[in-house]
Design a protein around this nucleic acid. Structure first.
Length: 310
DNA sequence: AAAGCTGGCAACCGCTGGACG
DNA sequence: TCGTCCAGCGGTTGCCAGCTT
């Protein structure tokens, strides 16, 4: 494995002359040396490793390169919806404890998770002009982003089931537990609903006969969250909220980069799930898939309601 | 086609806490 | 108890590819 094909994050001279240490991107040769050394001696005593291996790197640098890139079980590529959901949930519990969060995502390095949070999640917060650590943003994640990820998981699982009877995706237990803990979300003639009613006793998401998706709520897991603004809303408010929120294809960015509006508001909301059943290519429609899971129009409206209620 | 801008992410930096003499 | 060393963690940097103007 060679060093990153696009990186040269530090000064391209790569040489710390005062100590003869190299910096910057790793070369294929260095990677090979490090990998061989660790396969013989194990991954510990990083400073010793750095000296004895002949690598002109610090022990820290060796450790980081191994853990984030060279280790055999390191996963590359985009985070799956399941992984994103897990990150959102665990971050809401533990905050920026990246290594702790990473322990629950096998093959993912803390650095990768941290980068995901900073580049994807915090970006949305910036667009909304809201503090990513605020309770309001946490609630938006819980009521919009997480249900949407679950939707995506559900849809991809069901479509897989259709495509291949033997390949239905079964989410890991922790995801099933998480899905059962999210607020009930239903998509129907009134748009998206996110409520804390806990009458549903089933433990996994379901699609109702009317096409709504329900994510049964486990009040214990989210007891630390503030009350949901939807609880006290009338139907008219709900009507105004998130019309067509499930149709992420129609999002448009405005001049400031915010995704502001729908090109063509869905003409009918009675079959909202249908709007989600676009194929993978069409779903993205030029918008990063991960980002499209966060519909900025929804978020803006959600934000407005939060501010109104405040 | 070129310049400018932005996002993604690998790698570095500084700090903290545990182990050990 | 104190000092030193080291591993690990979270924050930050800065390059590059791709996108926009």
């Amino acid at each position: 494995m060679s060093s990153s094909s696009k990186k040269s994050p530090r000064s391209s001279t790569d040489e710390d002359n005062s100590h003869g240490l190299r910096r910057g991107p790793w070369t294929l040769e260095e990677d090979t040396i490090l990998t061989k050394y660790i396969s013989c001696h194990g991954e510990r005593h990083w400073n010793l490793l750095a000296k004895r291996s002949g690598l002109r790197r610090t022990g820290k640098s060796c450790r980081l390169r191994w853990l984030n890139y060279l280790k055999p079980d390191v996963k590359r590529g985009n985070l799956t919806p399941q992984e994103q959901l897990l990150i959102l949930e665990l971050h809401s519990k533990w905050g920026n404890r990246w290594s702790k969060i990473a322990q629950h995502l096998p093959g993912r390095a803390d650095n990768e998770i941290k980068n995901y949070w900073r580049t994807r999640v915090q970006k949305q917060a910036r667009h909304l002009k809201i503090d990513s650590n605020s309770a309001a943003f946490q609630e938006m994640i819980r009521c919009i982003w997480m249900p949407r990820l679950l939707q995506k998981m559900q849809l991809s699982s069901s479509s897989s089931s259709i495509l291949s009877q033997n390949s239905a995706i079964n989410p890991p237990p922790i995801i099933e537990q998480l899905s059962s803990s999210l607020p009930e979300v239903s998509l129907n003639g009134h748009g998206l609903r996110c409520s804390d009613t806990s009458s549903e006793q089933s433990t996994s998401p379901s699609i109702t006969s009317s096409g709504s998706m329900n994510f049964p709520h486990n009040p214990q897991m989210f007891s630390e969250y503030p009350s949901n603004p939807f609880l006290d809303m009338g139907n008219n408010d709900l009507d105004a909220f998130l019309k067509g929120c499930d149709n992420v294809d129609n999002c448009l960015s405005n001049d400031t980069g915010n995704i502001m509006a729908y090109m063509e508001p869905p003409e009918e909301f009675e079959e909202p799930i249908r709007g989600c059943q676009v194929d993978e290519n069409n779903w993205t429609n030029g918008i990063n898939l991960a980002d499209s899971l966060w519909n900025m129009d929804e978020a803006w409206k959600f934000r407005q309601l939060q501010e109104r209620d405040a």
